[in-house]
Simulated scan of single mutants.
Amino acid sequence: MKKLLLIRHAKATHESGYIDFDRPLKQSGMQDAVFMAGVLKGHGIIPEIIVTSPALRTLTTAQIFTEHLNLPTPNTDKKIYDASEFTLVNVINNLPNENDFIGLVGHNPGISQLLHYLTGQTRDLPTCAVALISFDNDDWRSISSEDGHLEFYDSPKE
Results as ranks from 00 to 15, higher is better:
residue 3 K to Y: 06
residue 3 K to A: 03
residue 4 L to N: 03
residue 8 R to S: 04
residue 10 A to W: 10
residue 11 K to A: 06
residue 11 K to N: 04
residue 13 T to F: 04
residue 14 H to M: 13
residue 14 H to S: 15
residue 16 S to W: 13
residue 17 G to F: 12
residue 17 G to I: 12
residue 19 I to G: 01
residue 20 D to C: 06
residue 21 F to D: 10
residue 24 P to N: 11
residue 25 L to N: 12
residue 29 G to D: 07
residue 29 G to R: 03
residue 29 G to W: 10
residue 30 M to H: 09
residue 32 D to Q: 12
residue 35 F to K: 15
residue 35 F to H: 15
residue 36 M to H: 10
residue 36 M to L: 10
residue 36 M to P: 06
residue 38 G to Y: 12
residue 39 V to A: 01
residue 40 L to W: 05
residue 40 L to G: 03
residue 41 K to V: 02
residue 47 P to R: 11
residue 48 E to S: 14
residue 49 I to F: 09
residue 50 I to Y: 06
residue 50 I to P: 03
residue 51 V to Y: 07
residue 51 V to T: 11
residue 53 S to Q: 06
residue 53 S to R: 08
residue 55 A to V: 09
residue 55 A to L: 10
residue 58 T to I: 13
residue 58 T to P: 13
residue 59 L to W: 15
residue 63 Q to R: 15
residue 64 I to N: 07
residue 64 I to V: 15
residue 67 E to G: 05
residue 67 E to M: 10
residue 68 H to A: 00
residue 69 L to G: 09
residue 69 L to E: 12
residue 70 N to H: 13
residue 72 P to I: 11
residue 74 P to M: 07
residue 75 N to S: 12
residue 75 N to L: 15
residue 75 N to P: 00
residue 79 K to D: 12
residue 80 I to V: 13
residue 84 S to T: 15
residue 85 E to I: 04
residue 85 E to K: 15
residue 86 F to M: 13
residue 87 T to M: 14
residue 89 V to E: 01
residue 90 N to A: 01
residue 90 N to I: 00
residue 90 N to V: 00
residue 91 V to E: 02
residue 91 V to K: 01
residue 95 L to V: 05
residue 95 L to W: 10
residue 97 N to C: 07
residue 97 N to M: 06
residue 98 E to K: 15
residue 99 N to F: 15
residue 100 D to N: 14
residue 101 F to I: 12
residue 102 I to R: 03
residue 103 G to P: 04
residue 104 L to M: 14
residue 105 V to T: 10
residue 106 G to V: 08
residue 109 P to N: 08
residue 110 G to L: 07
residue 111 I to P: 03
residue 112 S to P: 02
residue 113 Q to D: 15
residue 113 Q to K: 13
residue 114 L to C: 03
residue 114 L to P: 04
residue 114 L to D: 08
residue 115 L to W: 13
residue 115 L to P: 01
residue 116 H to M: 09
residue 117 Y to S: 01
residue 117 Y to D: 03
residue 119 T to D: 05
residue 119 T to W: 05
residue 119 T to H: 04
residue 120 G to W: 12
residue 121 Q to G: 00
residue 121 Q to L: 08
residue 123 R to C: 00
residue 124 D to C: 00
residue 124 D to T: 14
residue 125 L to V: 08
residue 126 P to W: 09
residue 127 T to P: 04
residue 128 C to W: 05
residue 129 A to I: 11
residue 130 V to Y: 05
residue 134 S to K: 07
residue 135 F to T: 03
residue 135 F to M: 01
residue 135 F to R: 03
residue 139 D to W: 06
residue 139 D to S: 10
residue 142 S to I: 05
residue 142 S to H: 04
residue 144 S to H: 13
residue 146 E to Q: 14
residue 146 E to Y: 10
residue 147 D to F: 14
residue 147 D to S: 10
residue 148 G to I: 14
residue 149 H to R: 07
residue 149 H to S: 11
residue 150 L to S: 00
residue 151 E to F: 00
residue 151 E to Y: 00
residue 152 F to W: 11
residue 153 Y to Q: 02
residue 155 S to H: 09
residue 155 S to T: 06
residue 156 P to S: 02
residue 157 K to H: 11
residue 157 K to S: 11
residue 158 E to P: 01
